[in-house]
Amino acid sequence: METVLRLMQNRRFWSMCAGFLGFFAVWYGSVKWVPLAPFGRLPDPVKVISEWLNPNPVFGISIFVKTYYYHILYSTYRATTAFFLALALGVPLGILMGWSRKFSDFASALLALLRPVPPLAWVPLAILILRGGEAAVIFVCFLVAFFATVLNTHAGVKSIDPDYFRAAACLGASRKDVLFDVIIPGALPNIFTGLQIAMGAAWFALAAGEMIAAQYGLGFLIMEAYNLVQTPTIVIGMATLGILGYISSAIIRLVGNRLMRWREEVIGVKS
């Protein structure tokens, strides 16, 4: 109850609501009253929401239909698998590159060459090598998430103030101590920025990958609805992807704030 009351008094909350309302008003207005053919073909928000909440949806997808959740589960499974693979491989690699000059020279040229290849260009090769859509979609998502993770982790290690290394050396820290006491915590802010980007990139690649090579998933749902010209279902798929993307990045932010409580600025006590 108290939380609700506080929310009611929060200016930012009302601004956010106003933003949403404005968006829906413009959407509704442009569909209903702008006499242009493209707007006429766009489903209006009322139509989309009533389909989304319909126990007997016209085009077969709503929150009351099991298949809808299959799509969500498949997409979430693929995106998170790719994300965790990128986390498990990208963070150590980025730290290693920041820790050892030699390794950095060795790896960075290769990364610089591979990174500009657009993720979707990997799809055909991935399908042929990995024999099928499932692994190929995950692989492509992993790839984009991996590059974001490695590069940001590496940048994070590079950004650590050299005085911290010197201070650690003065205080008798070994090379291993420096890794755990300086490099990892010092790079953590950038690592989490990288993970946020990686998660976003994974969803981005996922939607595209599922359109090409999958039997389930929100990307597939959107593509199927496109083939059948079911515009409300397309919008439902898009909105669901947006919500899932928001939730996943909120979780990462939460974990980050938890691990980096030292960053939260508190007003200092004056000496």
Binding site: D161, D163, Y164, R166, A167, M260, W262
Partner: peptide, 14 residues
């Protein structure tokens, strides 16, 4: 021979 640095080098994460 411990140094105290010009810009400060307390580990902010500790």
């Amino acid at each position: 021979r411990v140094v105290v640095f010009q810009h400060g080098a307390l580990f902010p994460w500790k």
